[in-house]
Amino acid sequence: MTPAINVLKKAKTDHNVHQYHHDPDSASYGEEAVEKMGQNPHQVFKTLLVKLDGRQLAVAVVPVADKLDLKAMASACGAKKAAMAEQQEAERSTGYIFGGISPLGQKKRLPTVVNSSVESFDTVFVSAGRRGLEIELAPADLVKLTSARLAVIAK
C-alpha cells in the first residue's frame, strides 16, 4: 500500500495496480515502466515537479513519450517561468522517492497540471508511489483526485 493507492481506495475510485520488477540500473523510470508493462508511451504518464518563479512548487503530469515544455507549464500556472525542481526538494514535498513520485497522495497538495492528451485514452497509467508500481485509472479520475487543470504542457 502506498498513499496514492490509499487515496483511490478512500475515494472508491476504479483502478488497477500493475507491478513490474524495477531494474536499479534503469536510466529512465518512465521508459522502464512502458517497456516492462508493454504499454503505449503516450498512455503512461510521468510526474515531474517544477519550481514556478523560483518559489512555488507545482506538479506536471506528461506522457513518457514527451518532454515537459517549461514555458507552457509556467503559462498554465500563471507564472513567468518554470524550472525543474531539485530532486531533494521534490522528495521532501511529495513524500515519495525520485522515480516513484505519484501525482496522487502527496504529502503537500500542490498546483497540478495534466497534459490535455490524457483525454485521448479510456485509462492512463501513473506511478503508484514506488518504483515498479503503476496505477491504471480513468483520466477524469486522475484530474478530479489531483484537482488538476488540463493544458498542453508537453512537446
Rank of each mutant, 00 (worst) to 15 (best):
G99Q: 01
E119I: 04
V7W: 05
D69C: 02
L49P: 10
V34S: 08
N115C: 14
K9R: 15
V113Q: 04
E35D: 13
A151K: 11
K9E: 15
P41W: 00
Y20M: 09
R109T: 15
T123Q: 11
D141G: 04
E91F: 06
C77I: 01
V124E: 02
H21V: 13
V113E: 05
A128E: 07
R149V: 15
V152P: 10
P24M: 05
R131C: 02
H42F: 06
P139T: 00
R149Y: 05
A65E: 02
G132E: 03
E91I: 04
L49T: 07
G105A: 03
L48R: 07
G95I: 01
Q87V: 15
K108W: 04
P103M: 00
D25Q: 13
S147T: 13
S26Q: 10
K144H: 14
V64C: 00
L142A: 04
L8S: 10
R92H: 08
V152T: 12
L70E: 04
A83D: 15
Q87T: 15
L110R: 14
Y29E: 00
L57H: 10
G95S: 03
S127E: 01
D122Y: 01
G38D: 11
G54R: 02
F125V: 07
A11C: 08
A128Y: 03
N6I: 08
I97D: 03
E136D: 08
D23C: 09
E35I: 09
T112S: 11
A128P: 07
V62Q: 03
V34L: 06
A60F: 04
S102Y: 00
A33N: 06
H21M: 09
M37Q: 13
A79K: 05
K108F: 05
A60R: 04
E35S: 15
E136H: 09
A33P: 09
L145D: 06
G99Y: 01
V124M: 04
T112Q: 13
G100T: 01
Q56N: 08
E136S: 12
V114D: 08
Q87H: 11
D23H: 13
L137S: 08
E32T: 08
P103D: 00
Y96G: 00
F121W: 08
K12L: 08
D69M: 00
M1I: 12
S116H: 15
K10Q: 14
H15W: 06
V34H: 06
F121H: 06
S26M: 06
R130M: 10
G30Q: 03
Y20V: 10
L8H: 10
Y20W: 10
A151V: 12
A72P: 05
P111L: 06
L70Y: 05
R92E: 13
A140G: 03
P41N: 02
T146L: 02
M1R: 09
Y96T: 00
K36Q: 15
H18N: 12
K144M: 12
A11Y: 06
